[in-house]
Design a protein around this nucleic acid. Structure first.
Length: 115
RNA sequence: UGAGCGUGAAAGACAAUCGCUGACGACUAGUGCCAGUGUACUAGGCGUUUGAGGAAAGUCCGGGCUCCAAAGGGCAGUGUGCUGGAUAACGUCCAGCGAGGGUGACCUCAGGGAAAGUGUCAUAGAAAAGGAAACCGCCUGCUUGGCAGGUAAGGGUGGAAAGGUGCGGUAAGAGCGCACCAGCAGUCAGGUGACUGGCUGGCUUGAUAAACCCCACAUGGAGCAAGACCGAAUAGGGAAGGAUAUGAAGCGGCCCGCAGACCUUCCGGGUGUGUCGCUAGAGCUGUCAGGUAACUGGCAGUCCAGAUAAAUGAUUGUCACCGCGCAAGCGGUACAGAACUCGGCUUAUUGAUCACUCAUAAU
RNA sequence: GCGGCCGUGGCGAAACGGCAGACGCGCUAGCUUCAGGCGCUAGUGGGGGUUGACCCCGUGGUGGUUCAAAUCCACUCGGCCGCA
């Protein structure tokens, strides 16, 4: 089942800062991906969309697209790491399939996909 | 047909698959209480149901609600400012009055007081505000190329020059006199009133209050980050300084009044991103009655988001509308995301419908 | 949610309601130097019309008050900051 309840989404400001500061980062034109493998936050995910992307509607849209990417591909992802996804400006105009392709590329680069 | 002026409905629809928030239900597992049936909490999947706006936005106003002991008085400050009404309240709305703009439909107006007082009116100009002012001109006189006196009709300056036009009058002129107009005061009539119309009077008062100000009215302050609960939780501890029942802090300006014992700084250390507040309300829909209207009242029906790094999404298909294209088809379908809540305003933006106006043409 | 500040030449910034751009950094030209820098002197200061003189528009935007607005008032756009 490809579910994504709220308990698996990062909530706390401290957690976001931890992943952002200590995680390894990978980026392409549409997304930035942070991977953090330390203890405490295994199998969790966070989504971020900064103010540069536009107003609340477009920021919400980018976050929803990223969440859908993670949800539909979570069975391939290793369970021992914590992921933070950040949207970049060119992603605002794009449809889901473009974002998903960008996510899969980044994931391969970061070697988060298990066997 | 073209141009315009008001009004302002609606905010693409349906289906399938996957996913999210809240509520309810039964089930499974764990933990606590209990002898046990059971019950409470947590987690999980399942079923039913629910889920953004007209502006949710800007935060420009006004209420509810909560706390500040009570929310009292005065001053200051701030805001509003034609009249009458609506309203919980408003800076909003409705109906009028007045002024201005437009051929017109219609639009705009912070629209009280300048005779309570003060200030300002640069440059130019003789003079810029109290009974002021003589630069040129005009008139009179004389010691005749200059001076004295009179004069605000003319010139000139200025955004504005001390009511305007005409006739009389005069040495020349002047509300000096008269008529009309404007304005002011009084009075009569109509109107709840703003105001409008008439009559009479003395002949006359610059502009600016979105300058200070005066007048009238309103206004205690803070805001759900309010506040309450659980709890180790503005805790408790140490050091320094200050104050003190001869009255501290406080009541986010001051005084009265209230009240009644601490306050400031530093050091070191610990604990929550908990629960409630949190959605039934000046609610929504329909209908009837009153009112020109804003709106009000009665009756019937109805329950319609409650998140907290913040749910309402993704994909596919069919249809609708628009653009391009011969066609197959391709692309597009605005502005924009609830955060305690309600009434407005403003701004962003797709956009019917209906009423009306002007121009042209036809009948 | 509450509150505050700013917007003026290319840049940083001044300016009682009364000639907009003081002043500094720039830029241009000249002097100085073998050359450059430093220094000194003068000028240009945004846009449009014009050969020039000169005229019109310009202080984020739109209106309003005023004889006159960068300044006062209202609305609005953009940017920055503070408060548990």
């Amino acid at each position: 089942m490809l579910k994504l309840p709220k308990s698996r989404i990062l909530r706390r400001r401290n957690d976001f800062q931890k992943v952002h500061r200590f995680g390894k980062s990978y980026a392409n034109r549409y997304l930035v991906l942070y991977v953090f493998t330390a203890s405490g936050l295994e199998d969790k995910v966070g989504f971020a969309a900064g103010k540069k992307l536009g107003n609340a509607v477009t920021r919400n849209r980018v976050k929803r697209l990223m969440r859908e990417c993670y949800r539909l591909n979570q069975d391939k992802i290793r369970k021992d790491c914590c992921i933070l996804l950040v949207g970049r400006k060119p992603a605002v105009e794009k449809k889901y399939d473009v974002i998903e392709k960008a996510f899969l590329d980044l994931g391969r680069k970061a070697e988060i996909f298990g066997r």
